[in-house]
């Protein structure tokens, strides 16, 4: 990330730098990598003991009560994608949510029924 740092350190950076404080300065998530549209789902409907969690962790957990995606969460909490990934990885370590691992799929093995559903859906927009 060193090469990216300069990009944030100008007058337009605004709140972009500060969120990394809540990741204790970490710029990489722990554990297995996950995709931008990996599905995120909270494992519990209520957070019994939020001790040790930052308010941003709680916000992410609340958003993940119904299955959602990494980018949707990043958009909703209005934090840089890199920060959100770290928060998600933390929560996964705590067992508070699951992140469906990215499964790269060869496009030529695509499930045609899903594609037809997509076509149907697009035509109906």
């Amino acid at each position: 990330m060193t090469s990216n740092d300069d990009r944030w350190l100008d007058e337009t950076a605004g709140p972009v730098v500060r969120p990394y404080a809540l990741t204790q300065g970490r710029t990489r998530p722990s554990g297995a990598a996950f995709d931008l549209v990996a599905t995120v789902t909270a494992t519990r409907s209520r957070i019994a003991n939020p001790g040790g969690l930052a308010p941003e962790h709680i916000s992410v957990l609340q958003l993940a009560q119904a299955p959602t995606t990494v980018v949707d969460i990043a958009s909703d909490v209005d934090l840089p994608l890199g920060v959100v990934r770290i928060l998600l990885a933390d929560l996964r370590e705590f067992g508070l949510l699951t992140i469906e691992a990215p499964v790269p799929v060869k496009a030529r093995q695509v499930d045609k029924n899903t594609l037809r559903e997509v076509l149907h859906g697009l035509r109906g927009l």
Partner: peptide
């Protein structure tokens, strides 16, 4: 099952499918 997206099940067993273009 293979397709160009990811799926997950919620508590009701419904698959959540995200397709990336």
């Amino acid at each position: 099952m293979a397709y160009g997206g990811y799926e997950a099940e919620d508590s009701t067993g419904t698959r959540h499918r995200a397709i990336k273009i």
